[in-house]
């Protein structure tokens, strides 16, 4: 190789290197503001929260390192923590129920029924409503004295006495779950409807020619091709369920007793009603790990590519 050719090759590689460095700098420059915000508002508080969970601290007292005492209390002595954890898992488990109802509704409004656009709009309307408004509406619906549900139940002679739904240890959690599902139904339906409309019609035609009945077509074509949409619904629904602080705060405030307490409401109460920021931090760490585990599980079930960017 001649000297000139070598020089030219070195110059080209330097040029490529410089270009890729410039590109990297450009990319990092664009990312930097978001990363700084993410670091300041997510990573640092998270790290501080983890640290706090190993300390005894209140706003006016210096922090004292206490090791795993907060965790020991949580797992060994705190019945409310366990109840809040089970309630949280119960609410997470209710997400598939909402998705199943939404799937049925989506199939219905995807068919050629009259006025389907009106139905789509009506079902979707619950989603853009503010959660606080949803909570207030349902609180009134479940009211013992003036609630619509008690009125209907008594008019139909289903019960002699009004049922204090939100003040009942038996009914309060199912009622909150019902309100939560109702609010998310419109969102699930739109996601599933979009998924349904991307399924090529010729697959159904071919299956029909092969003699598959409508149930088999649903089982063999619709469900498998809807999997990404269903998992998206599940992940969003699950995250929405475990963080539905406002719905529970307004509807029951975690009561009666701790019948509707979930981890987020319990964390808030510990920190701001009982000034136990240290113990609340320990529960937050457990809550964070729970969320990580559930999200990881959902991601694995969906094939490990939820939220992945697809390149053409």
């Amino acid at each position: 190789m001649s000297v000139t050719a070598m020089d030219s090759s070195v110059a080209r590689s330097r040029f490529t290197e410089r270009r890729s460095t410039r590109k990297a700098v450009l990319i990092w420059s664009f990312l930097a503001p978001s990363l700084v915000i993410f670091l300041l508002y997510r990573i640092l508080p998270l790290a501080w929260n983890v640290l706090l969970s190993f300390e005894a601290w209140s706003p006016l007292k210096p922090a004292v390192f206490i090791g795993f005492d907060n965790y020991r209390e949580m797992f060994q002595d705190d019945d409310v923590f366990w109840q809040a954890l089970w309630n949280t898992l119960g609410i997470i488990a209710s997400a598939p129920l909402g998705i199943a109802i939404a799937l049925g509704l989506a199939l219905l409004v995807n068919s050629n029924i009259r006025g389907r656009d009106v139905y789509r709009t009506l079902i979707f309307l619950s989603y853009p409503l503010m959660t606080v408004a949803v909570a207030i509406i349902w609180r009134w619906m479940f009211d013992e004295r003036v609630g619509l549900i008690n009125y209907v139940a008594r008019s139909l002679h289903l019960t002699d006495q009004p049922i204090p739904f939100l003040n009942s240890f038996t009914w309060a959690l199912p009622c909150v779950i019902a309100a939560n599902i109702w609010q998310m139904l419109g969102f699930y339906m739109i996601i599933i409807l979009t998924g349904l409309q991307t399924i090529p019609g010729n697959l159904y035609e071919a299956a029909e020619i092969d003699g598959a009945n409508s149930f088999r077509r649903f089982l063999r074509i619709t469900l498998p091709l809807l999997r990404p949409s269903l998992f998206l619904c599940f992940v969003i629904g699950m995250l929405n369920s475990v963080t539905s602080f406002d719905l529970i705060y307004v509807m029951t405030n975690g009561g009666p007793g701790h019948a509707t307490e979930i981890l987020v409401t319990y964390i808030y109460k510990l920190a701001f009603n009982q000034t136990r920021f240290d113990y609340a931090a320990a529960i937050t760490v457990v809550f964070f790990l729970l969320l990580l585990a559930v999200t990881w599980g959902a991601n694995r079930l969906s094939g490990g590519n939820v939220g992945a960017v697809e390149y053409d």
């Binding site: 003040n167 240890f169 405030n253 009666p256």
Partner: peptide, 15 residues
């Protein structure tokens, strides 16, 4: 009334 032990402000006063 059971609300004595389950309600807070609105429920018992309302009842």
């Amino acid at each position: 009334n059971k609300i004595a032990w389950t309600g807070r402000w609105v429920e018992p006063n309302g009842a």
